[in-house]
Amino acid sequence: MPFWDLQRQLGIDVDRWMLRQSTAQPHGNASACHAFEREWVECGHGLGQTRARRECVPEYEDFMECMHRTKLAARLKAILEQRDKMIKAGKYTPPDYHKGKEEPRP
């Protein structure tokens, strides 16, 4: 440990600049996708870039899904389209509290 901690004094952290989820988080808790990023980095560690791109695809996809929620958004969109299709066909009627017609609360 150096006598003057220059990185802390300047407010930079050169050691963690590559990892998005490893930076200091509020209240000291780990970020939501930290575990997925860690698995991805551990998978690719020591393999080299070419092999890691081939062999660590599941870990990378899990990390990207946690970060961007693309699969979740696509699934939600499909569910809502199916609901709208069923409403149009008359096979489903949403409850009153989904229509905004519920009784007022005290």
Rank of each mutant, 00 (worst) to 15 (best):
R105L: 11
A35L: 07
G28K: 08
G100W: 06
Y97H: 04
R105Q: 05
V14D: 07
F3P: 03
T23V: 03
E39S: 15
Q82H: 07
D5F: 15
L19K: 08
Q7I: 12
R16D: 08
M67H: 07
E61Y: 01
G11I: 04
I87D: 06
Q9M: 11
S22N: 04
K91Y: 01
Q49Y: 03
F3V: 09
W17Q: 02
L19M: 14
L72Y: 13
L76S: 13
Q49A: 15
K91W: 08
G90F: 05
E55K: 02
P94E: 06
G28F: 00
A52R: 02
D62T: 10
P58F: 13
Q25C: 13
R51E: 07
M1L: 02
L80F: 10
R69Y: 00
R38D: 02
P95N: 00
H45K: 14
A32V: 12
D5K: 15
R83C: 12
Y92Q: 02
S22G: 04
A30V: 08
W17Y: 10
M1Q: 06
Y97M: 03
R8P: 00
H98P: 02
F36T: 04
G44R: 03
K77F: 10
V41F: 08
R38K: 13
R105I: 01
K77L: 07
N29E: 08
A35M: 08
R105N: 12
R20Y: 06
Q82N: 09
A30Q: 00
R20F: 11
L80E: 06
Q25F: 02
W17A: 05
H45M: 12
L80C: 02
Y92V: 03
H68E: 10
Q9T: 03
G28Q: 02
M64I: 15
E61C: 13
G90T: 01
L80Y: 01
T70L: 07
M64A: 13
A89R: 04
P106V: 05
G90N: 04
Q82F: 14
I87G: 12
F36I: 14
R20Q: 12
L19N: 03
C33A: 09
R105T: 10
R53H: 07
H98T: 01
A35K: 02
H68L: 12
L72Q: 10
C33Q: 01
M67I: 13
L76N: 15
E42I: 06
V57R: 01
M1P: 05
P58I: 14
K101W: 11
K71A: 12
A73Y: 07
G44C: 03
Q21H: 08
R75M: 15
W40H: 00
P58S: 12
F63G: 00
Y97C: 11
C56I: 05
I12V: 12
P106E: 02
T23E: 03
L10P: 03
G44N: 13
G100K: 15
Q82V: 10
R20P: 09
A89D: 09
I12D: 00
K101V: 12
K71I: 05
D96T: 03
E39I: 05
D5V: 15
R38E: 06
N29Y: 04
R83Q: 09
L6D: 08
